[in-house]
Design a protein around this nucleic acid. Sequence first.
DNA 1: CAAGTTAGTAGACGCATGTTTACTTCGTCA
DNA 2: TGACGAAGTAAACATGCGTCTACTAACTTG
Lengths: 186, 186
Amino acid sequence: MEGVRRRDREGTRQRILDAARGLFAELGYDQVTMRLIAAEAGANIALINRYFGSKRELFAEVLAMQGRFPGVLDGPVAELPRRLAEYVADRLRSDLASPVMATLSRSSASPEIHDIIRDRVNSAIMGPLAALLPGEEAQLRAALATALITGSGTLRQLFGPEALGPSSREAVVARLTRIFEACLEG
Amino acid sequence: MEGVRRRDREGTRQRILDAARGLFAELGYDQVTMRLIAAEAGANIALINRYFGSKRELFAEVLAMQGRFPGVLDGPVAELPRRLAEYVADRLRSDLASPVMATLSRSSASPEIHDIIRDRVNSAIMGPLAALLPGEEAQLRAALATALITGSGTLRQLFGPEALGPSSREAVVARLTRIFEACLEG
DNA sequence: CAAGTTAGTAGACGCATGTTTACTTCGTCA
DNA sequence: TGACGAAGTAAACATGCGTCTACTAACTTG
């Protein structure tokens, strides 16, 4: 029957995955404990490893689940700097979750997941960006744009939404657009 | 007398400080253990807390010991973008230690030292930079340059010296100069 | 030379972590 | 209905951490 199942393998698995996604984005890999994930998901701690194998594998699955930059990398390349600027500005100034960016920039110090992070940065940001860019030095240009994105995440984490001072959203977007243009232009 | 002292308080203290500086820069706060510092310094672990109080206080002292950006912030403001570019390019492409930058970008995920890191970023990089900049939005411009610097450190940590691809130093410096100009210009 | 100060040492303490084991309870189906 | 598989649970395990205490031994000083 499809009635309310008190024992719900898939449901529990999904709750764990959701809890882990939010916590990893908010706190970073190291600061998130198995017990915290279990409590947030309303599940027993032993189920995490039963369903995912280990904390590391759960982290990998959380990252694999996340979409790429939604809507940022799509669209005309000429407007790419502006879309990147708006994305970063909004993530810097508000508390809106940007799971991918937040997770990556808050977990990059943990050596046990270095390879996972590296692969994800490559496949979600740097790789697609380099593929989009015409002209020479595409890898260099994509890498520097990526550095700015992740650096913004670190700054946000350190200083909060006021990291950029009292500037208006328009001023921030305008400035960031020019910087991304300098990063990406051929 | 000034003979060879087998019991040398100041010497031991200095060896601990030196070991901690190198290890924090290389591995970040979380990954460096008291026992690792003691082993590297050739000192007993209990002496660390005797001389510095705690791991956290040792970290603060290590940061306080470090100089500011040597030679980068001094000199004509017009050439500031180029000096920043050369600094970042060299730190990205070689293994030359940049203790301040490395320590900051590798330790920013640890909440117990958040305030120390924040103060240091402010007093060593962002603050002096904002003070140098003429015109409006100095804080925004300094913050974005800082984001690029710390993001470069993160990228270096993830991908090693080859993070930027096969580009020459000249190409990297030229590109970074343009980006820093876009960050800093009034 | 004897006493006192203090650098240095060994080891334990309490705690938190990721992981695993032994067990209980629910749901299903022969 | 009763047995079996699987979802869920509680508790322990092993390990590593920062910190602290009790102690030893080297240097200084009277």
